[in-house]
Design a binder for these strands. Sequence first.
RNA 1: GCGCGGAUGGCGGAAUCGGUAGACGCGCGGGACUUAGGAUCCCGUGGGGCGACCCGUCCGAGUUCGAGUCUCGGUCCGCGCACCA
Length: 809
Amino acid sequence: MATASVSGRTRLDDYDHAAVESKWRRIWEDRGDYRTQLDAPDRPFYNLMMFPYPSAEGLHVGHIIPFAGGDIFGRWRRLKGDTVFEPMGFDAFGIHSENYALKIGEHPAVVMRRAVNNFRENQLKRIGSMFDWDHQVNTADPSYYRWTQWVFLQLFKQGLAEWREGAVNWCPSCKTVLADEQVEGGKCERCHTVVETRFLRQWWLKITRYAQELLDALDTLDWSDSTKTMQRNWIGRSEGATILFDLEGCTRKDVTVYTTRPDTLYGATFLVVGADHPELEDFVPRERLGDVNAWRNRLPPVRDEPDFSVGIELGSRAVHPLTGERVPVWAAPYVLGGYGTGAIMAVPAHDERDWQFAHAHALPIVEVITGGDVAQKAYTGDGLMVHSDSFDGMPSEEGKRRVIEKLRESRRGEASVQYKLRDWLISRQRYWGPPIPIIHCPDDGPVAVPDEDLPVLLPEVDDFRPTGTGVSPLATVEEWVNVPCPKCGEPARRETDVSDTFLDSGWYFLRYPSTDFDDVAFDEERTTTWLPVDMYIGGNEHAVRHLLYSRFIMRVFHEMGMAPEPEPFTRFRAHGMLVFSGAKMSKSRGNVINPDEYIDEYGADVFRLFMMSLGPYTVGGDFSDEAIAGMPRFLHRVWRASQLASVDDAYDEPKERRRHRLIKRVDDDIAELRYNTAISFLMEFARDVDQEAAGGTGRRIDAETLLKLLAPFAPFITEELWERTGHDGSVHDRGTWPDHDAELARPQRVTVAVTVNGKRRAEIEVDAGASEDDLRRLALEQPRIVALLAGREPHDVIAVVDRIVNIVV
RNA sequence: GCGCGGAUGGCGGAAUCGGUAGACGCGCGGGACUUAGGAUCCCGUGGGGCGACCCGUCCGAGUUCGAGUCUCGGUCCGCGCACCA
């Protein structure tokens, strides 16, 4: 405790962050301060942060940012009176973990056990977040993945999981199938090997059924705009038309193409079928089959830059549905067999790719929309229709509708909506994931494993390496694979693929409140109480896949009456990216900050504060080693000021106004995650109170306010000081955030600038709200202004209350 | 290429509505305390000028009494998507 010294200065214990932080960590844990009352809570608030996938490297700052930023928000909600549930867990299954285990030659189960323990005990528990460890989840634990399997079976039983063959991306290096979104520019996102195409029977979840709903519901969500935009682009709705072309010279009678520009139909000079179209052969005259197949098998690998010289004329003809003209049919890889109908009508005059292709192959280019010079390049804008029979002169926008109408009359076309979104391929021919709980029976087909047989435990195997044959290592475990069919009892085989890690994380938020139930995945009452998540914080790298899949799963459970709302995350904020001395932080650059060293040296409070002060939370900032020095100074001030400020009952109006203004600013800033500016206000206030305390005029109430407002940011030191200054209970107690009076928070005196022709020449201090006339009068009385005007009459005097007076001469 | 952000002192960043540009912090300069300080505290700190003043928010126009903020055009950087017809 503080003791007065002869000089009037006071000697205090030094602030020992290591001692203070370990002391309170222990007390909070023993007391169970952050164990949440999950049943019948008062004002429940579900505060979620994206859980990490444990790696041997340990947590890096990229993890800490959401954990610290999310926790500040949660602690603030708690102080504001909510019952905050803030759980944490581990995304321990998946290729990341498995690849690491392979690298070091240990079993992934062993590696993960060690990594999870390290994350939790040595790292997560140190950063001062109020995680409720009684409700942690670990996706690789049978008590969790039992329910992941159950979730899959619910989708299966709803007809939303399908076993079908499809062209899949095969990474020859990772020896597994990749989802489309794991392929970047034709290469594996993990190892950058060029991806090959293979055809396998696999499990797909039919998220495409929900494309429109998922798109529409974005409007109801309070999410970062950037995230919503990315989801919209990913779903990729486009409006256009499907148009039927008859075919001649091949076994197939007709083909439907999809276009967003039906108004350009008269400019269609050829058709292109995707080189990967599954029924490409049906478009080819018999005598050309050999040539086409030879061409197809020698296609160059997909590259970043499309090559429009690649293509082959098939020999068949297509009949233009309006003119009856015969146009050639080509195949080319620039058309995707998997999007739309897998074939297009090429309008080279008005589509850049078609233009390039036509140029490369000397195909005719016919202008049908005015506005450009199609001999030079494709014109993709709007204009008037030409060379289009009776449509000539019609604006293209109207033409889109009218051409569709015309096609409808002859049943050769209709309006159509397409989405880029594809079904979710969840099969992985790997070891480290939940086995897909299906038994394949020769008679009954794919049969669900009965609920009472869940979990389908991942068998212990010595060799868990990917086989490279397209089959999971599980297939080699004969005694595990061979089981009787649950329906008919005849010999059958288990599904040997495991599911995608995004399925694990697609429902974990539903599990947290119900981890103490082992008979259901999520308890009805708990789910109704806690879902949807009130605040979700994480990185924008998961803006599309994780968030979209989670929305899909929640939506399905809502339809089934098992979830209270269709959307899982009411509010989502993506944290910004942290750069290190101007360069993006990444393992390959070797500039990843290891938080442990900083926490050792400065303590968790300083580290949290520092990271939050670098810039706006949702934008990011530049982590520079040197700048951290300001934070210990700040906390030192708080340490001293709060123990020395002891003046009671001094109703000092300016200080009260200052205090109320501070509360309002910090409150407003935290609500919008503007932690950096909230921290600056607290620093200013701490400096003032510190100086007052040194002079014997520091007020106890100011010190208390400072500790309360700082508590979400620096939970340890504020708790210690709360105790040292004689308070009972915890500084973090629910509902103890200081109130502020809006009237008092408003300044009473303001400084108004006086400008002449927009240049500042003087300032005047007046009561807030002083009238425009008063401002004008006072401004014109200023000696500086009188001198500057030198008798001239102002042309105009503009006054804005509380802001400015501008004299125009 | 398309979409979305961004550009402010030596550095990270502030600046509700168009109203004193540079809050807060780092760094730097000066001072205090001290045997000492790389601890702590105080003062100063956009550039130029002795000065009244002048110039300053990526560049160029514009709107306005007034623009970091709004409009148009351009440059550069970041992120996302990327042959999606």
